[in-house]
Design a protein around this nucleic acid. Structure first.
Lengths: 196, 196
DNA sequence: GCTATATATATGTTTCTACATATACTTGTC
DNA sequence: GACAAGTATATGTAGAAACATATATATAGC
């Protein structure tokens, strides 16, 4: 459902092929809040065309395979604008990592702390990548003169805020585990900073 | 995949029926980080039994329908512990709401602000519910004497941190939209605090 | 000449998830 | 007596998502 509206959104700004949508829009511009593989993009385009939200034209190319270029219809625009202006119910919060934490007492404290630390590294890497994108985005569009650039920036800020919150929580949780280890007198087993 | 491990985790602590897992575990204890409907729980139990991670016994009851009570096997425990101790790749960050923000320039500023504000209300409601659960959890288990209770608390903290981050971002974004409205001199159209 | 990469679209298959519906027994309420 | 609610399990179906594979043309590098 969501991919439908993302694709309509990209096409609202101009005609695009499935290849464009996959490589330029989904993978490059929207990857910090939505993902989709190639098969899903093409099948969604088929479906949107069947629903008369899009039309398509073959563009013959020389030196490259031919393209099927999609254009949004009036009905598609109406459908998109309705969806954009509607406040949808929050999806359930889902985080498989928290299953690991919830049952973390099955593990030794060392093993649990290790899982948390590795997750922290992954989150930090993702945050750094987002920061780079935000910086280059700011370079490209100056002081966000136009609305689309500002909205783009806001989505990057949201993703960065989520990563930062996750990292802060990981740090707090690791502190809690460490203080527990100290209390129970088993700190020699854990967190040996004097080693390696 | 994740539900498999959640169910193994619940059964690691004692035998349970599908009904127990759905009502007591999934809906009550784990709903802030995972959800599943009844059909999925029962089919997952079937699958885990086929894979020899669980065994089941019919318990005859009088006055109530009979129960099928599941028990984790040694293989199931090993499978669970392996998964718990493994650092898994972060799933892609997905947020359908950010699709709305990304294409928000399709909308009027009023309409966009309205969507943000409604989302804020929903997030705040969810945060309040989480806070209540955290409070009653603290009442029940005292100062988290046991590890499982501490882990439970940590998952609640993670969910609350995510909600708080989302709310803070919404507030910042609404401020930005308001300042833009003021700059462009159209503040009379927007955010009329003197009305109604 | 071979291989990799970029451009471009399509189909097959499986798993997860959601929603609906069916069955069946008991207790409590109107 | 009828009806709802709680206890308990099972199946049907459809959509979303992930992953794999197939096809075809052109260019660039080895």
């Amino acid at each position: 459902m969501s991919l439908d509206h993302a694709i309509l959104g990209f096409l609202a700004d101009g005609d695009l092929s499935g290849y464009d949508i996959k490589t330029r829009c989904v993978d490059r511009d929207a990857s910090h809040f939505w993902t989709a593989d190639q098969a899903q993009v093409y099948r969604t385009l088929d479906r949107l065309e069947s629903a008369r939200h899009l039309t398509s034209k073959q563009k013959i190319q020389t030196g490259k395979p031919n393209r099927k270029v999609y254009r949004i219809t009036q009905a598609g625009r109406v459908h998109l604008d309705d969806w954009l202006a509607t406040s949808h119910a929050l999806p359930p919060y889902r985080d498989a990592f928290l299953i690991q934490v919830y049952f973390g007492s099955e593990l030794s404290d060392e093993a649990l702390a290790d899982v948390l630390e590795r997750t922290r590294v992954q989150r930090q890497t993702r945050l750094s990548a987002l920061r780079e994108r935000a910086t280059s985005h700011a370079m490209e569009v100056g002081s966000s003169a136009n609305r689309p650039a500002l909205m783009h920036r806001m989505t990057l800020d949201a993703a960065m805020a989520a990563e930062r919150a996750a990292i802060d929580w990981l740090d707090d949780s690791l502190d809690t585990l460490r203080s527990l280890a100290t209390e129970s007198g088993s700190q020699r087993q854990l967190f040996r900073e004097d080693q390696a």
